[in-house]
């Protein structure tokens, strides 16, 4: 069964009709961990706000758990959990007060759904008398997740939950999401971090309000047909310039300590290319063939 269905959704802002979401369609199966991956301004937050009934789309339809986001917004508000990008709990209330407040607002109690949040809550419980504003970034995220889960939502919307959180907490956070998935909660998560994409069941790569590709992370990587090379030299900047100017280059870009590049004809005569690099006075050149990552796929889709 599909938990979330979006059809031909479009949203523009302001008088200039700036396109934020451009005729998007996708669906998410029940119990799936679905990722919206894309840079800032790709339209991820707009989609979240439309699906959580905070924003009205210009055109198109969407439903969550079978409820229409416009007609049945009341039912949706009862069943979904939402964690906005910006920490939006009461900073002047303590962890415990925030949690019981949101439990009450949804007409439930902490005790009733304690088993759902237990794993996460025990980590912040020692600080339950501390005001939310005084918590560290990672603890704030955990508290926000607890508050979004306290009414046992069927679908959970997490808008960039790991932005501004340290690598260790990020890892922990994704482990928590995995465990929540086991409870058969549909999770839609957005992130600008490509490395997190591979942790999702399926992902949608987004850019400028459009979905470039939707598939499982593995299939997206498999769809990358060209042979990819990682190239390194002592002089990185000149190397990038040289790669750009090399007539056989299809695509090249900096990637960490390497430059990634694809070539026409799958690079049959490697010697000629190496000679070309040597002519340009590059030293310590290292070339290796590598597997593409999601980020490589994303960059390719952008071109």
């Amino acid at each position: 069964m599909e938990a979330v269905v979006v059809q031909n959704m479009t949203k523009t802002y302001g008088k200039e009709k700036t396109l934020a979401v451009d005729n998007i369609s996708f669906s998410v199966a029940k119990g799936e961990l679905f990722g919206l991956i894309g840079p800032d301004g790709a339209g991820k937050t707009s989609i979240f706000r439309i699906l959580t009934t905070l924003l009205l789309a210009d055109s198109g339809t969407a439903s969550v758990d079978g409820f229409d986001v416009v007609k049945d917004f009341k039912s949706i508000r009862n069943t979904v959990g939402y964690m906005p990008v910006k920490f939006s709990l009461y900073q002047d209330l303590t962890i415990e007060e925030n949690l019981s407040f949101f439990a009450t607002v949804f007409g439930t109690t902490i005790e009733a759904n304690y088993d759902l949040i237990k794993d996460i809550y025990v980590q912040i419980e020692p600080f339950k008398k501390r005001r939310a504003g005084k918590l560290s970034g990672g603890m704030k995220q955990k508290l926000a997740l607890c508050c979004a889960l306290i009414h046992k939502p069927t679908t959970l919307f997490l808008d960039e939950p790991t932005t501004g959180v340290d690598p260790v907490s990020r890892k922990e956070f994704w482990e928590m999401l995995r465990r929540l998935k086991e409870q058969n909660i549909t999770i839609i998560v957005s992130t600008p971090y490509m490395d997190e994409a591979s942790l999702c069941d399926r992902i949608a790569l987004m850019q400028g309000g459009k979905i470039l590709s939707i598939d499982t992370p593995d299939d997206i990587v498999k769809a990358y047909r060209e042979k990819l090379y990682a190239i390194k030299a002592n002089e990185m900047y000149p190397l990038l310039k040289v790669l750009e100017n090399y007539p056989g280059t299809l695509n090249s870009y900096a990637f960490g300590e390497y430059a990634h590049a694809t070539f026409k004809d799958q690079m049959k005569n490697m010697e000629e290319f190496e000679r070309f690099l040597a002519e340009k006075q590059l030293t310590g050149v290292e070339i290796k063939s590598i597997e593409a990552t999601i980020e490589d796929s994303f960059i390719k889709l952008l071109h």
Binding site: T53, K74, R77, P84, K86, F87, V105
Partner: peptide, 11 residues
Amino acid sequence: IGTIEQINVTP
């Protein structure tokens, strides 16, 4: 502060 966002998705 943005807390209204969280309130608005509640019933």
